[in-house]
């Protein structure tokens, strides 16, 4: 039963993802890609439960390494996106206000 529910969640998120991104202007392609990439760092949550849980030693090590890499993805991803958007905003501010 659990598996079926998870399948439904998967299906609905896929439809949602398609709906969200359908009308994006070309200038936002790279920031959007980078922002979405930062979200995929959500693996950090899974890595946390493995690194801190009562698992075998090996699983803990792997979990800790996963926390490290996923944190790079999350922190770096959001910061890079913010920098890109900052530049974008300055350049287009007068137009954006109209």
């Amino acid at each position: 039963m659990e598996t079926v529910l998870l399948g439904f969640v998967l299906m609905l998120s896929i439809f949602l993802g398609f709906e969200l991104i359908s009308k994006v202007p070309a200038t936002l392609h790279t920031p959007l890609m980078s922002g979405a990439n930062a979200i995929s760092g959500i693996t950090v949550v899974g890595a946390l439960t493995l690194a801190g849980g009562e698992m075998g030693e090996w699983a803990t090590w792997l979990g800790a390494a996963a926390v490290f890499f996923a944190t790079i993805n999350v922190v770096g991803g959001y910061m890079v996106t913010d920098r890109m958007l900052g530049m974008f905003k300055k350049k287009d501010e007068p137009e954006a206000r109209v």
Binding site: S13, F18, I21, S22, S40, T43, T49
Partner: peptide
């Protein structure tokens, strides 16, 4: 995103599944 989603299915974590498949779908359409 899809990898995160699969990892979420493996360890039974809903937020990984939702966020992962969201990125997976948004990434394909982008």
């Amino acid at each position: 995103g899809l990898a995160a989603c699969a990892a979420g299915l493996a360890i039974n974590n809903t937020i990984l599944i939702v966020a992962g498949s969201l990125v997976g779908a948004a990434g394909i359409i982008l």
